[in-house]
Nucleic acid binder design. Structure first.
Lengths: 126, 126
DNA sequence: CTAACTGTATTATACATCTGATACGGTTTG
DNA sequence: CAAACCGTATCAGATGTATAATACAGTTAG
């Protein structure tokens, strides 16, 4: 209950905007249930120090999440995840479709058969 | 034999650098066999007009491919794909690993089981 | 041969991303 | 209460991406 959102296992990938990586990490955590409604987020300053990025970059990610309704911020207090059923269903559908579609398209364009693609995903699962 | 590389089916995705999309399209075409050794590429000007982007953007993609050894350019004449066995194997491994790994990671982070992930890929295959 | 096309290069501009430094007022905590 | 932390905001600068307008020399085709 009201746990602190952990960024353990988060690693920065080169070439992709950092604020987008933070967005994706939090959305995927919410969809998987690792992050729950009411969980507190690390402050902008703390997270930026943890990730080694600028506070403004974290602020941009948090701000966009707030505009999507996944975060509630009150000036002076820590921000909190807001995850009602409707929002969760929307984000889940958004992420599932995007990830599955892009994966299928990439592997098909490489000339793989469906069976070969499934076998490859299975091999890289762990 | 020495066919012209076709960009039919190529659509610009927002948020990803255009020169990277051109790189990926040509690499995937080469790996799948749709593009073959010796095939002529559309000129920088023609392709930029076809895609509705700036010639410099196409030039950047072609230049990077030449640095990787996948394209041969001779000032004044059309550029040509250079796809020996070794290069193809390298690019194939590079793309397969990147695509499969990122897909597996994304779907697993969403809390899906391996079976659910495979079923999802299958659903979005066509 | 000549015109049209090709690769290559340069300069300027615009926008998004990221960083760095700083500041202000609100909230929490000892 | 007071110090420490918080969210928020602003300004400047660096870099990467993309556009726009040219220019020049080499190759190709009629």
């Amino acid at each position: 209950m009201t746990a602190l959102v952990s960024f353990e296992g988060f690693t920065l990938a080169p070439g992709i905007p950092i604020y987008q990586q933070i967005l994706l990490f939090l959305k995927r955590g919410a969809v998987s249930g690792v992050i729950q409604n009411g969980d507190e987020l690390p402050s902008r300053r703390v997270l930026s120090a943890l990730l080694g990025v600028n506070p403004n970059t974290v602020q941009k990610a948090y701000r966009m999440l707030e505009e999507e309704g996944l975060i509630a911020s009150h000036s002076g207090a820590k921000s909190v995840m807001v995850l009602d059923g409707e929002t969760l269903a929307r984000v889940r559908a958004e992420l599932l479709e995007a990830d599955a579609r892009s994966a299928a398209q990439a592997l098909r364009q490489l000339g793989l058969t469906k069976a070969e693609a499934l076998a490859l995903i299975e091999r890289y699962w762990e």
